[in-house]
């Protein structure tokens, strides 16, 4: 008869799934990678031919995330691969969508004037579209992983996008700059959040001296 272990009570599959997702995002590596990609998409809102390469950049970022994440976690909290389609591709895809949606809406609203992406026709609320997409993606990540900082990023997406919609900038900032600046600020927040998360993770999760155990 098996003696009771000192383990916690049996967890549901949902708990294991949430903890697996938490394992993928808690080290902060995903924030850094998504932050860099957000910067790229921000530049692409000014130099729109870069958007054509955005999918390539997305895959490059997803590939770059894996070794960074493994290096941080494998000797501290172990190594685990989530099924295909889990972090970081959904977040990276959301950033790309956040860039494409307002650009697409602006294209539709300006083409009628006969000058595609004419600055005079740019709606100032374009950043709000981007903010809504990012807010949803961060909230979804928070729900899946239970990691609180993604709720903060979700709220920040909304707040920053509304700011860049409503604030009365001077003539030096044109309507397309509002969208670009929104992405730049979000990139900065992501990089800062990722840096803080990574520093805390490294400080609180010591490296194990050797791989624990062996299958006999």
């Amino acid at each position: 008869m098996t003696t009771a272990t000192k383990t916690q009570p049996a967890d549901s599959i949902t708990d294991f799934r949430r903890r697996a997702y938490r394992h993928a995002v808690e080290d902060g590596a995903i924030d850094l990678v998504v932050g860099v990609y957000t910067l790229m998409v921000g530049v692409a809102t000014q130099r729109r031919f870069f958007l054509a390469l955005a999918v390539v950049y997305l895959m490059a970022m997803a590939i770059a995330w894996k070794p960074l994440h493994d290096r941080l976690t494998s000797l501290r909290t172990g190594y685990a691969e989530l099924p295909l389609g889990a972090a970081p591709i959904p977040l990276l895809s959301a950033v790309l969508l956040a860039g494409l949606v307002p650009i697409g809406v602006v294209a539709v609203s300006t083409i009628a004037t006969g000058a595609l992406w004419n600055l005079a026709g740019w709606p100032t609320w374009a950043p709000v579209l981007a903010g809504a997409v990012l807010a949803w993606a961060f909230l979804d990540t928070a729900r899946r992983s239970g990691v609180g900082r993604f709720r903060f990023l979700s709220a920040a997406s909304v707040a920053v996008s509304v700011f860049f919609w409503l604030f009365a900038f001077g003539p030096g900032i044109n309507p397309s700059d509002r969208l670009t600046l929104f992405f730049f600020v979000m990139a900065g927040l992501l990089l800062a959040a990722g840096g803080v998360a990574m520093a805390r993770f490294v400080r609180t999760r010591p490296v194990t001296e050797e791989e624990a155990g062996d299958v006999r």
Binding site: T77, A80, E81, L82, E211
Partner: peptide, 8 residues
């Protein structure tokens, strides 16, 4: 998960 190690 797809795969995981002993420590995880």
């Amino acid at each position: 998960v797809s795969r995981a190690d002993f420590l995880y």
